[in-house]
């Protein structure tokens, strides 16, 4: 019971902070909406997309891009959570969490889950606006996508936690945005399908195929249509577990890098 109360408390605090920071909420929505309403509209006529699973017919670009933008919302939320962890560590409030009697791995996992809850709220707010713009996702897809969002949240949240255990100072975070977030997003199938990228460059397509975020986007894409892509699911789950495991080691009292920064 204590463990559940602790989980509830960490999620509750994260939600309180999220709702008290309205600019964070609007910032999280504006970014993908600009891509959807401006970028996708512009490319709608220029970019032709062949029929590829899970789609059973030709689709406009604005439909194709939605799973990628969902991934973008989750990726940026994970980075926001990571930034928040670094800030908490520098400001000292992380210590309140780390001196809880519950195991460190559990506390870090709770932080991850809290970040996932916030990211899912952001995703559904985005999907609500996207639905008003172009209602092309099956109604049931809004439900079947939920497990994929959770799995993707573990993958990206794990990455964020790992980064937060590695980053020494808050000032270094801008570098992370440039060297981690943008390559992760652009070197994936978020904006173009893999076959389209391969038409331009085999090397780029191979890099995209090695990027776990690609599989997170595809997992979401298939889930919108009530389908499970087993390869994507396997990559997301394994990569998520590895990243979370590394983050837990990073915060470990005996081996972690936290010892140098607290």
């Amino acid at each position: 019971m204590k463990w559940l109360i602790c989980l509830y408390g960490i999620i509750w605090r994260e939600l309180l902070r999220f709702f008290s920071q309205r600019s964070r909420f609007f910032g999280a929505l504006v970014r993908p909406l600009i891509w959807l309403l401006v970028f996708a509209t512009g490319f709608r006529a220029a970019l032709g997309l062949a029929i590829v699973p899970p789609y059973e017919t030709y689709i406009p670009y604005s439909i194709y891009i939605v799973p990628g933008l969902v991934g973008m919302v989750q990726l940026f939320n994970a980075m926001q959570s990571s930034l928040s962890m670094v800030y908490d560590r520098e400001m000292g409030s992380m210590r309140a969490l780390l001196t809880s009697p519950l195991p460190r791995w559990y506390l870090i996992s709770c932080k991850l889950l809290a970040g996932i809850v916030v990211s899912i709220l952001q995703v559904y707010a985005f999907l609500g606006i996207a639905w008003a713009f172009d209602d092309a996702i099956p109604t049931l897809g809004y439900v079947t996508v939920l497990p994929a969002l959770i799995a993707n949240g573990v993958l990206l949240g794990g990455l964020g936690l790992l980064l937060s255990s590695l980053i020494r100072q808050l000032e270094n975070f801008a570098g992370v945005m440039n060297f981690v977030v943008f390559p992760v997003f652009f070197l994936s199938t978020a904006l173009y399908p893999l076959w389209k990228i391969r038409e331009g460059s085999d090397l780029l397509a191979d890099i995209c195929a090695l990027n776990p975020f690609t599989y997170g986007v595809e997992l979401v894409r298939f889930a919108f249509y009530g389908q499970l892509d087993p390869v994507s699911a396997a990559v997301v789950v394994v990569a998520g577990a590895v990243l979370l495991g590394c983050a837990i080691v990073g915060y470990s009292p005996s081996r972690g890098l936290i010892r140098r920064k607290t």
Binding site: K2, G9, W12, L16, S100
Partner: peptide, 19 residues
Amino acid sequence: TLDLDLTVVQNLRYAAALH
């Protein structure tokens, strides 16, 4: 180490939940 964006009670409730 208080969370400055939370109220006094919210800070204490969070600490209670951690225990």
